[in-house]
């Protein structure tokens, strides 16, 4: 569904990605893990057209979308929830949600989807007229996820959704992602909370120093002692 072929890229002249390769199948959840600074978030930016790509390819269902702009990626059915806080602080919850469909020519459909998405996240309906900045961190994250679902994406890139969320909310977010997967959406996620994330994922991907180190079924990675070692801050030994 999504394929990265020997992707090299970085910020300006600084190279961060040194050959990222993977293929992820449709309607699956893949978790990317790796040490801090490995380039996990950078891979997402590369896919979403926010990075200087030096060489390599990004393919979406076989179509070359390398260097497509964020607006074009949205047009291809990809949405992105970056790390950290990503709301428009002074706009209402409702208007933040609306921005998730801003590229769509069919605004009547966007309205309808806003109602549907608020059914999934009832908190948003209760607070629809509040400014986004007034929401708690967890509520803001829910708003961001809801916003990313507005245009029925086929692929959702979600970077560390659990940061700042209570364990209950993390379970809720994971449940949402599983439901999406069951509806046919492909999920690519970065998660610090690697054990819990791999446990609910189909596939896992280990990234180190801007390269794919391991890519396997999630349960295989969970059982791999090298991955366990990595969680404790170590590196994967060659060979």
């Amino acid at each position: 569904m999504l394929e990265l072929k020997d992707l090299h890229g970085g910020y300006g002249k600084i190279t961060i990605l040194n050959g990222v390769n993977f293929v992820i199948p449709k309607a699956s959840i893949t978790t990317v893990i790796g040490p801090n600074g490995a380039g996990k978030s950078t891979v997402f930016k590369a896919i979403f057209g926010l990075l200087n790509i030096h060489s390599g390819q990004v393919l979406l269902d076989g179509q070359d979308v390398t260097r497509a702009s964020p607006a074009q990626m949205i047009g291809h059915g990809v949405t992105y929830v970056p790390q950290g806080r990503n709301v428009i602080p002074q706009l209402s919850v409702w208007h933040n949600l609306e921005l998730g469909g801003i590229t769509s020519p069919d605004q009547a459909r966007v309205r309808a989807r806003m109602e549907e998405v608020m059914d999934q996240f009832p908190m948003l309906r209760q607070r629809r007229n509040q400014k986004a900045i007034e929401l708690s961190g967890g509520q803001q994250k829910q708003l961001e996820i809801a916003r990313a679902l507005l245009l029925d994406p086929r692929l959702i890139l979600i970077d560390e959704p659990s940061i700042g969320l209570s364990p209950n909310l993390v379970q809720e977010v994971f449940a949402t992602l599983i439901r999406l997967r069951d509806q046919g959406v492909t999920v690519l996620m970065v998660e610090q909370n690697a054990k819990a994330a791999l446990a609910m994922s189909d596939y896992g991907l280990v990234l180190e120093l801007g390269q794919t180190r391991m890519h396997d079924r999630a349960e295989t990675l969970l059982a791999d002692p090298r991955v366990g070692h990595l969680f404790l801050g170590g590196h994967i030994e060659e060979g």
Binding site: N86, P89, Q90
Partner: peptide
């Protein structure tokens, strides 16, 4: 509102496809 979004958080406005 797209103008407000751009002023308040340009990076987010961009990933939402705002010009």
């Amino acid at each position: 509102r797209c103008m407000q979004a751009t002023a308040q958080n340009p990076a987010v406005a961009e990933i939402l496809g705002v010009n």
